[in-house]
Amino acid sequence: MLTIESLTHLGMGRASDGQSLLPRVLPGEEVDVAQDGTVRIVTPSVDRVAAPCRHFKSCGGCAMQHATDAFVADWKQDIVVKAVQARGLDTDFREMATSPTQSRRRAKLSGRRTKKGAMVGFHTRASDTLVQVPGCQLLTPALIASFPALEALTALACSRKGEIDLTVTEADLGPDVLVETDKDLTPQLRVELAALANQYGLSRLVWNDEPVVMINPPKQDFGGNGVVPPPGAFLQATKHGEATLVAAVNEIARTASRIVDLFAGCGTFSLPLAKRVAVHAVEGEAAMLNALDRGWREGRQLRRVTTETRDLFRRPLEADELRHFDAAVIDPPRAGAEAQIATLAASEINTIAMVSCNPVTFARDARTLVDAGFAMPWLQVVDQFRWSPHVEVVASFTRK
Rank of each mutant, 00 (worst) to 15 (best):
A118G: 09
P52F: 08
L292Q: 07
I259T: 09
R106M: 09
A328C: 14
T68G: 09
S103L: 11
A243I: 09
M12F: 10
A328V: 15
L317F: 10
L196Y: 03
R48G: 09
P230S: 10
M214L: 03
G111N: 07
A155G: 09
Q35L: 09
M214E: 15
M376C: 10
G284H: 07
H55Y: 05
L235A: 00
E29S: 08
L150N: 02
M64Q: 13
R297D: 04
V394E: 06
V370P: 01
D209T: 14
M96F: 08
M288R: 11
D221E: 12
L153P: 01
P332H: 05
V393R: 00
D311C: 10
G226A: 15
L185S: 07
L130V: 09
R204S: 12
S127Q: 13
S45H: 05
E298W: 08
I252F: 14
C136N: 08
L189C: 11
D184L: 15
Q65M: 11
T124C: 13
R399P: 00
G224I: 14
I252A: 14
V72Q: 14
P359H: 00
S58R: 15
A67G: 10
A395F: 12
E321Q: 15
S110M: 06
L317A: 07
V42Y: 01
A248E: 11
V177N: 07
N358T: 04
A278R: 04
A291N: 08
A118D: 06
K239R: 15
A327V: 14
L109T: 00
D176C: 08
M96G: 07
D172L: 13
H123D: 05
A339C: 12
C136P: 06
F147M: 11
D36Q: 04
P23K: 04
S270H: 03
G117E: 11
L245P: 02
A274W: 01
T306Q: 11
T361N: 06
L379Q: 05
N358W: 03
A366R: 00
T238M: 07
V46M: 12
A253V: 15
P389S: 02
G18C: 14
A327F: 12
L344F: 06
L369V: 01
G18V: 12
F385R: 01
G18Q: 13
G135L: 09
A126L: 12
Y200K: 06
T154N: 11
S159N: 14
E30H: 11
N208T: 04
R334M: 11
V212L: 02
A363Q: 01
E192R: 15
T255L: 15
